[in-house]
């Protein structure tokens, strides 16, 4: 018994499709960064942008047939982890002092 699928219009995905996907995700990250006013959501939009960049790193690594691009995305992940730890600690402190997470309301230098 053999299962064969009907032929698809394209036989393989070109590299450019991955790059366009990466660009779309990066654009969405920028949108979230600009539109959302919750500090944590803004932070998550930054993570989305980092992920989009990682995708193009890995795609180029596939194109160049070298592991180096993957090493870069590995470093990006490590830095993102460090950034998340410090950033979330800052958000916790902001919330403790101001009792709000809205970016628009955190606009005073003095308490």
């Amino acid at each position: 018994m053999d299962f064969t699928l009907p032929p698809l219009p394209i036989s393989a995905i070109p590299l450019s499709a991955y790059l366009i996907l990466s660009a779309i995700l990066f654009g969405l990250g920028i949108c979230g960064f600009l539109f959302r006013r919750n500090l944590i959501t803004v932070f998550m939009s930054i993570e989305l942008m980092l992920n989009a960049v990682n995708l193009s790193f890995v795609a180029f690594s596939h194109q160049m047939k070298q592991a180096d691009g993957q090493i870069y995305s590995f470093f990006v992940m490590v830095v993102a982890a460090a950034e998340a730890a410090v950033g979330l600690a800052i958000i916790l402190t902001v919330f403790k002092n101001r009792e709000t997470l809205e970016v628009d309301e955190v606009d005073n230098l003095k308490l």
Binding site: S11, A12, I13, P14, L15, S16, A17, Y18, L19, A59, S61, H62, Q63, K65, Q66, A67, Q70
Partner: peptide, 16 residues
Amino acid sequence: YTHAGSPVDFDAFTGG
């Protein structure tokens, strides 16, 4: 990137 080399598929690159 129209001219860019090999298309992406399984087993095209195994150095990862």
